[in-house]
């Protein structure tokens, strides 16, 4: 029981971190129709900028400056890169962001090298806030939860209660009509791209110390973020939140419980083969849940795409 509670909390942290990435990505995707492959690269840039700033002025200023820098970079890339490619069609756009992801990873390696960065939690938060059954819960994770929830509330307010939010909401469904009504849709695009990447940057700053700051961090998280928005449904903030939490818990619980395939197979009536070491299905019989945990979200995504291509809470099809 104690383990369940602590896993729920850990899954919440993971899920909210995914949400910070997927909320920006889902807005970008649904407005511009382009899956930004480089989204997780902005997350990585956030972590590296945060690390570099923390070397001079400490963690806290980095929490503000790094996302702003990343957001400005994102807006510039939208203005001078993506908009240029936009006229060639969706596939070149997608390929552009794919190339951008490669390039950002190489640039990061060029500047900071290939080793892991020693980016640490701020000393103020580097203690265990409470412990459940001997398992300590770091204060920093509580801080992560608060930041993510704060972002969700701010986004929800902007999208549903402000004029800008209304334009964005309208542009999600009818971009051409909004353009015809005289709104500067390109500027809105640039703004949304900038804010989306800034959110990814913020996620990087706060995840860098706890999940590690290294050149592979974007690749590690990149495709799972797509999975999240596809599962959640495009353009839906609630969908992004739901899918993020779902996948956060899925990953956590799959890693936590050593469900053995042999038990499952035996339970549904199969008998284990005598010659386990030689049997051609031996890998299936010896499989455990943590081994396949990280690929469960992909199975979920493929199933969702087959059964319900608009995702859990999406407004229109992918």
């Amino acid at each position: 029981m104690e383990l369940v509670i602590i896993n729920l909390l850990d899954g919440l942290v993971m899920g909210l971190l995914l949400f910070m990435l997927s909320s920006g990505l889902t807005l970008i995707f649904s407005m511009m129709g382009v899956l930004n492959f480089a989204h997780a690269s902005f997350y990585m840039l956030g972590a590296y900028f945060g690390y570099q700033i923390s070397q001079y002025v400490g963690f806290w200023p980095g929490l503000i400056i790094a996302p702003v820098l990343v957001g400005c970079g994102g807006a510039l890339i939208e203005r001078y890169g993506l908009r240029r490619v936009h006229k060639f069609g969706h596939v070149p756009e997608l390929i552009f962001t794919f190339g951008l992801a490669l390039l950002i990873e190489e640039v990061v390696q060029f500047i900071w090298g290939k080793s892991q960065m020693a980016y640490d939690e701020p000393a103020v938060l580097n203690f265990a806030l409470f412990s459940i059954g001997g398992n300590e819960f770091p204060a920093y994770k509580v801080f992560m939860i608060f930041i993510a929830v704060g972002i969700f509330l701010v986004l929800l307010y902007i999208l549903t209660r402000t004029r800008v939010g209304l334009v964005i909401q309208a542009a999600l469904s009818y971009p051409d009509t909004v353009q015809n009504l005289g709104h500067n849709v390109p500027l809105v695009f640039m703004g949304v791209f900038g804010v989306g990447t800034a959110l990814a940057g913020l996620a990087g700053v706060i995840a860098g110390p706890s999940l590690g700051t290294f050149p592979g961090m974007a690749f590690l998280l990149g495709s799972i973020v797509f999975v999240t928005i596809v599962v959640g449904g495009l353009g839906s903030l609630w969908g992004a939140l739901l899918a993020s939490l779902l996948i956060g818990w899925l990953l956590t619980f799959a890693a936590s419980y050593n469900v053995h395939m042999s038990d499952v197979l035996t339970a549904i009536g199969f008998t284990p083969p005598e010659d386990m070491a030689e049997h051609f299905l031996r890998d299936l019989w010896t499989l455990t849940m943590p081994q396949i945990g990280p690929i469960l979200p992909y199975i979920l995504m493929v199933l969702i795409l087959i059964v319900r291509p608009r995702g859990l809470m999406g407004k229109r099809e992918v």
Partner: peptide, 25 residues
């Protein structure tokens, strides 16, 4: 008390593994 394998280079967060290690004393 525990003997397990996790996918190489694919785990985003090791906390769940750490929880099990702690829970096993």
């Amino acid at each position: 008390v525990g003997n397990e394998l996790h996918p190489i280079g694919k785990v985003k967060d090791f906390t769940p593994y750490a929880r099990k290690i702690m829970a096993a004393g």
